[in-house]
Design a protein around this nucleic acid. Structure first.
Length: 224
DNA sequence: GACCAGGCACATC
DNA sequence: GATGTGCATGGT
């Protein structure tokens, strides 16, 4: 059927929303804080990131000018709880250098840049890959870009909707080509996928009592 | 103690 | 081009 994918994606969304309700993402107050969180949460649990952000806040470093002026050793100490603190310090500084060199350190100036171009610029920063770039675009800059992560792929594979070898861009296209380009929808959908991923769709043990188990094509042996 | 967490860059084949 | 490895803290 021509709209099969659309119906499946809508069904997943409805099941997740009914099970968990709105997730109120992103957990962050300002555009800048959300951007920093997007970088700091790479392969890292949010509880650890929250500590790092609290430290940055305590240092007054949730302002671009302030963070830009800090030495690497200081940033390393502040973000230590988030793990990978040396490489993440470098990544934060790479972002800051881009922001100040290319956009005068003004986050508001980014609003004038087309989404395609902005995504390409973000991907040009060492340490910002597809998921981080798209998280910044969607959650910090309110662009209708669907964020894909490991949970998204795992959930889709386990429910037989994709093959295990589809890459980031393909999976993103699956969502973006079958859903309305709605910032609020993309925001909630990704947040719900992370939620069900955390609670049920774990790497090792097969899932039990998952809200998505009513799906017709659930792969046998993966979910009860 | 093993495993995992809202990735990414880089080395090596 | 595909596959493997380092990065690091903190919770389960």
């Amino acid at each position: 059927m021509m709209h099969k994918r659309r119906e499946q994606l809508n069904e997943i969304y409805e099941l997740l929303l009914a099970a968990f309700g709105p997730q109120h993402w992103w957990p962050g107050e300002t555009t800048f804080e959300i951007i920093l969180g997007a970088i700091l949460t790479q392969n890292t649990s949010w509880t650890n990131v929250a500590k790092a952000i609290a430290n940055l806040k305590g240092a007054g470093a949730l302002e671009p000018e302030t963070l830009h002026a800090l030495d690497a050793e200081v940033i390393e100490k502040l973000i230590r709880p988030a793990g990978y603190f040396r490489i993440k310090t470098k990544r934060l500084q790479n972002f800051m250098q881009w922001l100040f060199d290319e956009h005068g350190g003004d986050l508001d100036a980014l609003a004038q840049v087309q989404t395609r171009r902005l995504r390409a610029e973000l991907l040009g920063i060492s340490g910002i890959g597809p998921e981080t770039a798209d998280s910044i675009l969607l959650y910090a800059l309110n662009r209708p870009v669907f964020v894909v992560d490991t949970y998204t792929a795992r959930i889709m594979v386990r429910h037989g909707l994709i093959e295990p070898d589809v890459d980031y861009e393909q999976l993103q296209y699956l969502f973006e080509s079958n859903l309305e380009p709605d910032v609020a929808l993309f925001n909630e959908y990704h947040a719900l996928l992370v939620r069900v991923g955390k609670d049920f769709c774990k790497p090792k043990p097969k899932c039990t009592a998952c809200p998505l188990n009513p799906l017709p094509r659930t792969v046998e042996g993966e979910c009860d």
